[in-house]
Amino acid sequence: MKKILVKAVTVSMLCAPLAAHASDKECDYKRDWMSSACERVMRVWHEGTWDLYLTGYGWHINGYEDPSHLNANSWGGGAGKHWTDANGNQDILFAFAFLDSHKNVQPIAGYARQWYTTPVLGGLSLGGGYFAGFTARSDIAHYLPLPIALPIGSVRYRRVSAMATFIPRIPGINKGDVAFFWGRYEF
């Protein structure tokens, strides 16, 4: 487990300077959608505000023979950055690690896009969107990075958000559906 954390920190330290020195020319792709995606990521990296993530719960919904043997307390944490547009919606870069269903460390990192409702009651809003990135698990190809894309939803009050995603059952990979919950604080 310590080796995995050391590897994750090392990769982060090596990738951070590369992103920090990226220029607009590096987002000059022949396809407009690729240039737009690159520009969004670079804007978050350069102009974004820091976030703190705390993970906490993985609900094993159905399909598992005995979910009581699985770890629901997915404790962990991490950091990220977000950039808020004129409509209050956010582009997010994140990286965190948590204990998976078998109490092994599972890192995850990527990009998210969240659209929010207009705040009511002094700052309460609902959000929805997606995230795409990479994760790695000890029980799937012994920590080989795996691409993922999942929906996300959130309830936000000013700078604090309760966030969630739904991980569907994938034959041959997992035995049932999981709802995963975490929190975010925007600095």
Rank of each mutant, 00 (worst) to 15 (best):
P171L: 04
A109H: 08
G123M: 14
L150T: 05
P171H: 09
T117C: 11
V155T: 11
F98G: 10
H60C: 10
Q90Y: 13
P107T: 02
W59E: 15
G56V: 00
W83K: 08
S161F: 02
T118S: 14
A162C: 07
L93E: 12
T49N: 15
T165P: 07
I152T: 13
G58H: 00
Y116C: 08
Y64S: 01
S74L: 01
N87E: 12
H60L: 13
H69L: 13
V120A: 07
I167N: 09
A132I: 05
L54G: 15
G76A: 06
P168N: 05
T118L: 13
G80K: 15
A86G: 00
S161W: 01
P107E: 03
A141F: 13
K175V: 00
K81G: 02
L70A: 02
R113G: 10
A149L: 14
D85W: 12
G176Q: 07
G76M: 09
D85I: 04
W83Y: 10
F96C: 01
D66C: 02
S138C: 01
A79K: 02
G127W: 14
V160H: 12
P119A: 05
G48E: 07
D139C: 04
N71G: 09
S125G: 07
G127K: 09
H69V: 10
V155F: 11
G122H: 14
Y111G: 02
P67D: 14
K103P: 02
N104Y: 11
A72Y: 06
T55H: 06
G77V: 00
R169V: 01
G133A: 10
S68L: 03
N73T: 05
A72R: 14
V105C: 03
Y57P: 06
R169C: 03
F131R: 15
K175M: 06
W50H: 15
A132R: 05
V160A: 07
L124Q: 10
P107C: 08
R137K: 14
Y143W: 03
K81H: 05
R159W: 10
F94V: 11
F98A: 08
F131I: 00
Y64D: 00
W115L: 03
S154W: 06
A97F: 09
A179P: 03
D66I: 03
T55A: 09
N87A: 11
A95P: 00
G88S: 09
W59N: 14
Y53G: 07
E47I: 05
L126R: 12
G128T: 10
R169A: 09
